[in-house]
Simulated assay, not measured.
Amino acid sequence: MERIVVVGAGHMGSVIVRGLLDGMPRVEVVVVEPSAERRASLDGGAEVAAAYEPRPDDLLVLAIPPQAFDSFADGLPPGACAQATVVSVMAGVRLETLASALGTGAVLRAMPNLASRVGQSMTVLCPGDQVSTGGMERAKGALSVIGKVLVVQDESLLDAATAVAGSGPALVAYLAQSFTDFARGAGFGTHDALLLTSQVLRGTADVLAEPGVTPESLYQQASTPHGTTAEGIATLREHRVGESVRAALEATTERARELAG
């Protein structure tokens, strides 16, 4: 039976484990969590261990904080990861660092986002040069249980992915706050204001996913000359909202590069 080992039972690790249990019932799922308190709080369905005991052909998912990686790697027996495929969801830990510390070139980096908790993550996945086609497909399949997966070959793109996919939900939520504030100011209750905003975002995302639709084609289609939408788009342009959003994404990307060293 295929075995997937998730190291770390924090927020992201727990989300991945739940997704694996629900979406890949024929896979053996093991959770490695050093904290006894956190182990005791885990739901059933997965085997739970305090330390990683390697087996050949494991798919090893590292969902630990980046600052805990050195300690984890130092505690492994020699050659523990030699036959494993390792997927890291640790922000900022480069492929070269992973390969050197773990003693294997079969390493991949993944950048999921907070929408993973509702199965709608946009995860960007980058394989190292020594990852086999089979290892790539296993990693992609495992991460597909929490949402969509986009594979890139250029590791430098992960910094921009951190901005667009990783920080994107928070940036969108910041903008959504303006929608809900406006609706509440117009007289809607808090619940209804959030319903209006969340459904607008959900419906817009679904329309953008249709073949041939782009953001520009969508807002142009909705903008009747001299109409309400056209007036709104003109005001956004006047206040340079698009430039502000791009500046925020550029700042986030630069910060990701700094954190990665």
Rank of each mutant, 00 (worst) to 15 (best):
E2A: 11
I4N: 01
I4K: 04
I4C: 05
V6K: 00
G8K: 03
S14I: 07
I16G: 00
L20Y: 07
M24G: 00
P25V: 13
V27E: 06
P34T: 08
S35Q: 08
E37T: 15
R38P: 01
S41K: 13
D43E: 14
G45H: 07
A49I: 04
A49D: 02
A50L: 03
A51R: 12
E53C: 08
E53I: 12
I64E: 00
F69K: 04
F69T: 04
A73E: 02
D74R: 15
G75Q: 09
L76H: 05
P78Y: 03
G79E: 05
G79V: 05
S88R: 12
S88Q: 12
M90R: 10
V93W: 11
A99L: 00
G103V: 03
G105R: 14
R109M: 11
L114S: 10
A115L: 13
S116I: 05
R117V: 14
G119P: 02
C126K: 04
G128A: 05
G128S: 05
G134I: 11
E137T: 14
R138H: 03
A139W: 10
A139F: 10
L143I: 09
S144G: 06
V145H: 09
V149Y: 15
L150K: 13
E155Y: 12
S156F: 14
S156L: 13
L158H: 08
T162A: 05
A165Q: 05
A165K: 07
P169F: 11
L171H: 13
V172H: 03
A176E: 00
Q177P: 02
Q177M: 10
S178K: 12
F182S: 12
G185I: 10
A186P: 05
H191E: 12
H191P: 02
H191T: 13
D192T: 15
D192W: 10
A193R: 07
L194Q: 15
L196A: 09
T197Y: 05
T197N: 02
S198Y: 06
L201W: 04
R202D: 03
A205G: 07
D206K: 01
G212M: 08
V213A: 01
E216Q: 13
S217Q: 03
S217D: 00
Q221V: 04
A222H: 03
H226T: 09
A234F: 08
T235Y: 08
L236W: 13
E238C: 12
V241G: 02
G242F: 14
G242E: 15
E243Q: 14
R246Q: 09
A248Y: 10
L249M: 14
A251F: 14
T252N: 10
R257C: 06
L259Q: 09
